[in-house]
Design a protein around this nucleic acid. Structure first.
Length: 850
RNA sequence: GGGAGCAUAGCUCAGUUGGUUUAGAGCAUCUGCCUUACAAGCAGAGGGUCCGCGGUUCGAACCCGUGUGCUCCCACCA
């Protein structure tokens, strides 16, 4: 068979993925074996896989494949998330751009039709990418958070929590996204440091002018200065507030001030909340647009004047600049204040603003009636699962504290969204505003005896995406809609969750809550957080920077195995990963190394039994030594790799395997058993080499599934496939053999080095001292040395003699080049010490013939 | 403001209870080699006040203290 010069991944990958799939290797059904279950963190249905997904998916596939080969019934559930706000934004945008349709002109049903069409059209992109990456997911279990049963489960959970009193509706200050025109949860707001401006505005003190007189123009006596970042909200002011201990404002007790531009009188109030030393020491109270002001407003029973519309423009309540965008209005108001001499100054101010995670616009604090989940009680069991160690988080130090802190201080979760794409809240209202909750309208009515047959109107809003994703590990097995079914009983709790640290609150914590609430059991035993993928300069990957590579292009260029290799080798557990294409290059080279080892083996295979006319091979003992050494090295590495993988140190596990294959197998073992030029390969030795190669391919397979399967089949004709080949039990390595092998490697390196540096001339005799009486123990070494270092003469002795002596120690080579005996005390001492350390070898270089 | 993590070669990182490490790997750099599996390779080389300072110890990259720098998370200061 003719093998190509280099490994070509493309067709090989396509071939094997289809074969594996057609043989149902990815499929899982409950059986007698222990389950190893992983649910994929569902990517957004209309998204594409970015490098972060690639890392997560690769990690999961490695764990799943390893488990599958280790006697587990491995089940990896793929799927996607409807991602309500993100997807809806995309559909709205598409409708406007491609069809010129405004969402407001569509009915809910019409819009959802477009949205589902969009999902059908683009929803398969991620599945295709998951496939190309080689992920062994069970395609018969693809789940989507808007599947019929899933939708029902979400509704059922809402109703259930409502009945338990854990869901309530109320007017609260929430974060509002003026672009998407929906409420957001606190977690969906990202705070960014920005340089803003602080405007110092004059508020005149009302002096109750007699009828008919206008207000006096300002002087230092009759106005105060208030600092604000948001002059466009002054029309919503309902008071100004100072600290009661602040002497400067004591004279204002009982007075009123005039809000500029709209000339509205508001009272001066006093509260300890105000920091005397910040700004001007007095602040305006705008309950509708600031959470602190809102709280103060509640305390002093102040009115709430919302001066903004849902889209962030000024409302009629603002009286001026109605309909102008909030930022445009700010500019105009500043101009007008300035024109009227009411703007004292403006200064640069560094602050933090909340941005909507999805639309990236500044979120607006807004009073709004929304649905909330009471978190305190359901958070408690979720906290205990982690603090008790029943759920392990990796890396532990980094995230356990964060997790605890959030749960201990958890706030209620705003779950209603003013969108259409998602599970519609199962609540109905009558004309009087009474609320009816039930899975259907009929049921909702039933729950409330006081109702007559008045028509009810359903709540227009949908639920937060995370209110569906928190059921993911349960409902992918229909655990909510069909409790106690065969799948949920077998697969739950799942084994490990692999996900990004950025969704620890959004998703991980809430899944644990849902698991405890509905199955009274944790949803997974281990949580492994991967780091964030950055570019090689450490920058976040983003579309705008153009530093986020296209996964399919990378696979096309390097092959899926090389992509997997590259991303794993540079991925220290839990730390951010700096993605550099050169690591993919390294993966490609590694493919080729494996490929060439295969080529060498195939060459040998052809020559087995072919007798040539030269001397029969003489290196039998050498090969035997090589075999027993490598066998133990293999055991050693398998133990190491198991330990590392159990600790999720996958990057280190891969490095260990890489060096086992490249260095120990290719550079040492294959060289040691290589027949001398023109000689045939011994059948038994060859078979052993094939066995080792098999083992290596198996250890590597979870990391690089395609090339390993391909080589497995090219190496030998066989009926089974590597992907489902079961690992043999791990054996303990024999220390002595490992050491002998290492010593021999050191020895060969030392002699090569000595030759390189001309310390040994080609015609030199090399005398090797071995601390043993047993000649057979150094015979193999002699064989290997003869072959490896091409020494003319190698002699063995049991005691060191004079002349030039080279000591081979662990790391360095010490040459004693004297012509005389080693009688100096220091040299003797050193020699003895090194001899002890060496437990073995000494070489002398006899310069007699040089 | 509160909390967490990190700091080791040009870059990315190992270094598991302090002692077989006068500090290792991969990548990058430089120098030789197209040697009959592999130039996607082989053989070599250079490169480090283990962030600074102090302490514990026979012995510290590792433990303690302190300072500096970076990163992340949380938090309502106009």
């Amino acid at each position: 068979m003719e093998l190509s010069k280099n490994y070509i991944p493309g067709t090989v990958e396509e071939k094997w993925y289809q074969l594996w799939r057609s043989k149902n290797y990815f499929k899982s059904e409950p059986d007698n074996r222990p389950a190893f279950t992983v649910v994929i963190p569902p990517p957004n249905v209309t998204g594409v896989l970015h490098m972060g997904h690639t890392l997560n998916e690769t990690v999961q596939d490695i764990l799943v494949r390893k488990a599958r080969m280790s006697g587990f019934n491995a089940c990896w559930v793929p799927g996607s998330d409807h991602a309500s706000i993100a997807t809806e934004a995309k559909v709205v945008d598409m409708l406007k751009r491609e069809k010129g349709i405004d969402k407001n002109d569509l009915s809910r049903e019409e819009f959802l039709k477009y949205a589902f069409e969009w999902k059908e059209k683009y929803g398969n992109i991620i599945y295709n990418q998951i496939e190309k990456l080689g992920c062994s997911v069970d395609w018969d279990r693809v789940s989507f958070t808007m599947d019929d049963h899933y939708y029902k489960a979400v509704i059922k959970v809402f109703v259930d929590l409502y009945k338990k009193g854990l869901i309530y509706r109320g007017a609260r200050m929430i974060n509002w996204d003026p672009a998407a025109k929906t409420a957001l949860s606190d977690e969906e707001v990202e705070y960014k440091d920005v340089t803003g401006k602080l405007y110092y505005i004059k508020y005149e003190i009302s002096i109750n002018p007699p009828e008919g007189e206008t207000l006096q123009s300002s002087n230092s006596e009759n106005f105060i200065v208030i600092a604000t970042q948001r002059p466009e909200t002054i029309m919503g002011d309902v008071a100004v507030c100072a600290n009661p201990n602040d002497e400067r404002f004591a004279h204002l007790k009982g007075k009123k001030v005039i809000v500029p531009l709209i000339n509205k009188e508001v009272p001066v109030i006093f509260d300890e909340y105000v920091d005397k030393d910040f700004g001007t020491g007095i602040l305006k109270i705008t309950p509708a647009h600031d959470i602190n002001d809102f709280n103060i407003g509640l305390k002093y029973n102040l009115p709430v004047i919302d001066t903004l519309n849902e889209d962030g423009t000024l409302s009629e309540a603002a009286q001026i600049f109605i309909g102008e965008d909030r930022f445009v209005a700010r500019k105009k108001i500043v101009e007008e204040l300035s024109a009227k001499g009411l703007l004292v100054k403006e200064e640069e101010y560094s602050t933090r603003l909340g941005y909507s995670q999805r639309t990236n616009v500044v979120a607006e604090p807004k009073i709004s009636t929304q649905w909330f989940v009471k978190m305190k009680d359901i958070a408690q069991p979720a906290l205990e699962e982690v603090t008790s160690g029943r759920i392990n988080i990796y890396p532990r130090d980094k995230f356990t504290a964060t997790y605890k802190y959030w749960l201990e201080n958890v706030k209620d979760w705003c779950i209603s969204r003013q969108l259409w794409w998602g599970q519609q809240i199962p609540a109905w209202y009558d004309e009087d505003g009474n609320v009816y909750v039930g899975e259907t309208e009929e049921e909702a009515r039933k729950g409330q005896p006081a109702t007559d047959n008045r028509p009810l109107k359903r709540d227009e809003d949908v639920l937060d995406t995370w209110f569906s994703s928190w059921l993911w590990p349960i409902e992918v097995f229909k655990g909510i809609t069909q409790p106690n079914n065969k799948d949920i009983n077998y697969y739950y709790p799942t084994s490990v969750l692999v996900t990004g640290q950025d969704i620890i609150f959004f998703w991980v914590a809430r899944m644990i809550m849902a698991g405890m609430e509905y199955l009274h059991e944790k949803p997974f035993s281990d949580v492994y957080f991967t780091g964030m993928v950055r570019d090689k300069l450490g920058r976040k990957m983003s579309k705008s920077l153009g530093n986020s590579p296209d996964l399919l292009l990378l696979i096309h260029e390097y092959g899926a195995d090389a992509v997997r290799f590259g991303i794993m080798i540079s991925s220290p557990a839990g730390n951010d990963l700096l993605f550099d294409e050169s690591s993919l290059e390294q993966g490609k080279h590694f493919n080729n190394k494996l490929w060439n080892a295969l080529k060498l083996m195939k060459m040998w295979e052809e020559k087995i039994g072919v007798i040539d006319d030269r001397q029969p091979k003489t290196d039998e003992p050498g090969s035997q030594f090589a075999i027993s050494w490598f066998e133990n090295r293999l055991h050693e590495v398998r133990n190491e790799v198991d330990t590392l993988m159990n600790q999720f140190r996958l990057s280190e596990a891969l490095k260990t395997i890489y060096s086992l294959i490249w260095d120990d197998f290719c550079s040492w073992f294959l060289e040691w058993i290589k027949p001398e030029f023109g000689h045939a390969m011994d059948q038994k030795v060859y078979e052993k080499a094939v066995y080792f190669f098999d083992e290596l391919l198996q250890i590597l397979h979870p990391f690089m599934p395609f090339i390993t399967e391909e080589i497995y089949h090219l190496l030998k004709e066989r009926k089974d496939d590597l992907m489902i080949k079961q690992f043999s039990p791990v054996q303990k390595a024999e220390e002595k053999l490992l050491q002998s092998g290492n010593k021999l490697k050191e020895l060969i390196s030392a002699i090569r080095d000595a030759k390189h540096k001309n310390k040994i001339k080609p015609k030199d005799n090399i005398t090797l001292f071995v601390e043993t009486d047993d000649e057979t123990s150094y015979q193999p070494i002699r064989d290997i040395l003869l072959k490896q270092v091409n020494a003319q003469n190698i002699f063995f002795n049991q005691k060191p003699v004079a002349h030039s002596i080279m000591l081979v120690t662990g790391k360095e080579k010490i040459y004693i080049e004297s012509e005389t005996e080693i009688d100096k005390e220091s040299q003797k001492e050193k020699l003895l010490k090194d001899l002890d350390y060496l437990k073995g070898f000494l070489i002398t270089v006899d310069r007699k013939f040089s």
